[in-house]
Design a protein around this nucleic acid. Structure first.
Ligand SMILES: [Zn+2]
Ligand SMILES: [Zn+2]
Ligand SMILES: [Zn+2]
Ligand SMILES: [Zn+2]
Lengths: 130, 130
DNA sequence: TTACATAGTGTTATAATATAACAATTTAAA
DNA sequence: TTTAAATTGTTATATTATAACACTATGTAA
């Protein structure tokens, strides 16, 4: 539930790698980078990724099949995520906007349904690429 | 730009199938269903899907790798999409909310950046599954 | 009409992403 | 300490998506 829990060996290795990376990392690129540390099979990577996503240490960028570390302390453990994605340089940034998360968390559809979770991906050109 | 343009043979076959479906369809399930109509290879499916997405006749549900027909005449040609997804029955519905699309289309991040496109996926339980 | 450009098709092969199944080991509680 | 839950290791396989190349249809403009 919180992000303080201890990670297992593989989880820690993979989290450290993603956390250091300046860009979202793909599963097989992660695999490549941790083979020298003894993680040899895709499944070992995917299992760690699943857990890290579940506890909110990382997020999956669905449109890119890639993973980034969460740097947003207020993000509700992977339950409410928003990202900006540059269509040229592919830079991905987690958006941390109280008003946006408030708006979406409270959003009700036509039937009055409220949602327990959302993922939002914005696309455009980043500062550098404009 | 508009949705009125003529579709090619393969595009029409694949659009008709997705449009008739009550749920999002996956590429290889589509392939399976159109083989009797002469579409034999994955690439034929993916090319049609790419085009249909581009012109806004269908949308890709990124978290599911599946495709649904657009039934939202006001949706800005795949540039601004929102869906609700039931986590039990997997039912997916395109959300058509003027206030939501207005809010997101006008959303500016901390640096004042406005985005040209977004995709939002809400998760929860649908009416039936609650 | 002809020439040209653009979009679409068919095909084979292969790349990239992700999970199934099973056995063993470690860790955390009761 | 015993038991349950989580994690690991491993092999094999399933699923999703693209590369490369040759050919065909369609629209447009001289
Ligand atoms: Zn986060
Ligand atoms: Zn950029
Ligand atoms: Zn739509
Ligand atoms: Zn449901």
């Amino acid at each position: 539930m919180d992000k303080m829990q201890n990670l297992s060996k593989n989880q820690q290795i993979i989290f450290d790698l993603i956390d250091k990376s300046s860009e979202p990392m793909k599963a097989y690129s992660i695999l490549h980078n941790v083979q020298k540390k003894g993680i040899k099979a895709p499944l070992q990577v995917y299992r760690a990724l699943d857990k890290l996503v579940e506890i909110g240490k990382i997020h999956k960028i669905e449109s890119r099949n890639a993973f980034i570390a969460c740097h947003n302390s207020s993000c509700q453990v992977s339950k409410a995520t928003a990202f900006s994605i540059c269509e040229i340089c592919k830079k991905v940034t987690e958006i941390s906007s109280a008003s946006l998360s408030k708006y979406l968390t409270n959003f009700k559809d036509k039937d009055g349904m409220k949602y327990s979770k959302y993922n939002l991906e914005f696309f455009g050109l980043c500062k550098k690429c404009r």
